[in-house]
């Protein structure tokens, strides 16, 4: 974990209710699947946001406006400075990917898979990506994933773009392993539908984001885990679903 100041360099509305913000600062030691915790004026708790990309001093985050924190972020102008805790969470374990890993993202769960895809491609892997959204105007990053060299399938719940249905209606054949991030109902569906082992990134309301407060604990096969510190990524085999 590091604590440093980042400066907004751009903030763009890339799909309905979805923003891509780039910030300059110390991006050392940020891994795919990790998150940053952002202090915002007027809000007491920091807001955890997944790392979409981090390279050469530029951090990219992509977020959906869902409440006061993300609305404040959405209105941030270039030049604005934020206090960030970085390098939080365990991140995805790339060593298990196999040759043809499958990346399954849903909505605001798509961004962390981007840096993962980039690192997997750099390592010579050939990832598939299945990206699920509600409607066509919410779709983002289809081109970004295919530019990396991923075989991309987009799904929309209403069929207004790509395959009509859920991500689980469009899982390709022939993948060796999978990585997923998205809303919990989607994660549960992926858990049932997937034919290989894989890794899931979870979301939870957090207090600190660095393992001190036990605010985001969950039960797993291997004992209690803190989503912020021991997660957010859990292996399929260790997941115990709530009820």
């Amino acid at each position: 974990m590091k604590n440093s100041i980042f400066t907004v360099t751009e903030n763009q509305n890339i799909a309905r209710g979805t923003f891509r913000m780039r910030l300059s600062g110390d991006t050392g030691e940020m891994r795919p699947g990790q998150f940053v915790n952002i202090k915002l004026d007027g809000l007491y708790l920091r807001r955890p946001i997944s790392v979409c990309d981090a390279e050469d001093g530029i951090l990219t985050i992509v977020f959906k406006t869902v409440g006061r924190g993300t609305e404040k972020l959405a209105s941030a102008e270039p030049g604005e400075k934020f206090d960030l805790l970085t390098g939080l969470g365990n991140g995805y374990d790339l060593s298990k990917s196999g040759e043809k890993p499958l990346l399954i993202g849903g909505g605001a769960g798509v961004p962390p898979l981007y840096m993962l895809a980039k690192k997997l491609v750099e390592a010579g892997k050939r990832p598939f990506a299945v990206l699920g959204f509600n409607t066509a105007d919410e779709v983002f990053f289809e081109k970004e994933f295919s530019d990396l060299g991923c075989a991309v399938t987009v799904t929309t719940t209403d069929g207004s773009r790509g395959v009509k249905g859920f991500v689980t209606d469009a899982l390709p054949a022939g993948y060796d392993y999978f990585y997923t991030c998205g809303p919990e109902p989607m994660l549960r569906a992926v858990y049932k539908a997937a034919r290989t082992s894989g890794q899931f990134s979870f979301e939870e309301r957090m207090g600190c984001g660095f393992g001190a407060c036990m605010g985001c604990s969950c039960r797993t096969v291997t004992g209690y885990k803190r989503i912020c510190k021991d997660g957010p990524v859990l292996e399929k085999e260790e997941i115990l679903w709530k009820d």
Partner: peptide
């Protein structure tokens, strides 16, 4: 059970 945290 979670959520265990709320902003105020």
């Amino acid at each position: 059970p979670t959520p265990r945290i709320a902003e105020c």
